[in-house]
């Protein structure tokens, strides 16, 4: 029997950068992320900005956009890079913690769906975040301009334009109309 060599979070961290490419580890296996569209990227930065300005004003914690690594599980390693993520202040006790992949889950993970994303991969990803302790997961659907919000109690809310997306216990007081998240790009 040939055993496939599984990668660790450290292997992934040491991997030379490949321009324009982004990887995650799923059960120790390297998975390349699809290249995102410009529109996708605009939504990512908008959501990042909305969270960041809300959280910074209130000193709630730290907001990350793309390209960061969270080690959701060890042995085999599960390392994910949400489009936008947030860590509450209390969990970040030193700068050193931010100089390497984060050991654990973000408090909030946001994923913007790309046309090539497979349903089962997204389903697994949500489960992986929740199992690792993510308290709030937002799945953003540009095609239908909607958001699915998963909280720690297992409530799944399917929100559409006109509905309010709230920050729950992670970002108390944060509220934005779902339609606002898609107000990016050229105005018609």
């Amino acid at each position: 029997m040939t055993a496939t060599k599984l990668m660790t979070a450290e292997d992934l961290w040491m991997m030379p950068e490949a321009p324009g490419k982004q990887f995650e580890l799923v059960n120790g296996e390297l998975v390349e992320m699809p290249t995102a569209s410009l529109y996708h990227n605009l939504i990512v930065s908008l959501i990042g900005r909305l969270i960041e300005s809300f959280a910074a004003d209130r000193d709630l914690g730290f907001t990350f956009v793309d390209g960061v690594s969270f080690v959701l599980r060890r042995n085999p390693d599960d390392v994910r890079g949400p489009d936008v993520s947030f860590l509450v202040k209390d969990r970040v006790t030193s700068l050193e913690m931010l100089l390497k992949p984060w050991e654990g889950a973000p408090d909030l993970a946001v994923e913007i769906i790309s046309p090539s994303d497979r349903a089962t991969d997204i389903h697994d990803k949500i489960k992986a975040y929740q199992a690792a302790g993510t308290r709030l997961t937002w799945i953003v659907w540009p095609d239908t301009r909607s958001v699915t919000s998963y909280d720690a109690r297992g409530t799944i809310s399917e929100l559409q334009s006109g509905d309010v997306l709230d920050g729950g216990e992670v970002l108390p007081g944060f509220a934005v109309n779902v339609a606002r998240l898609f107000e990016v790009g050229p105005t018609p």
């Binding site: 769906i113 046309p115 090539s116 994303d117 497979r118 349903a119 089962t120 991969d121 997204i122 389903h123 659907w141 095609d143 239908t144 909607s146 699915t148 399917e158």
Partner: peptide
């Protein structure tokens, strides 16, 4: 029933 090659978008749109 979701198939391995179903796109996330497509499943979401169908449900809606």
């Amino acid at each position: 029933v979701v198939s391995a090659n179903d796109r996330a978008n497509e499943v979401d749109a169908k449900v809606e």
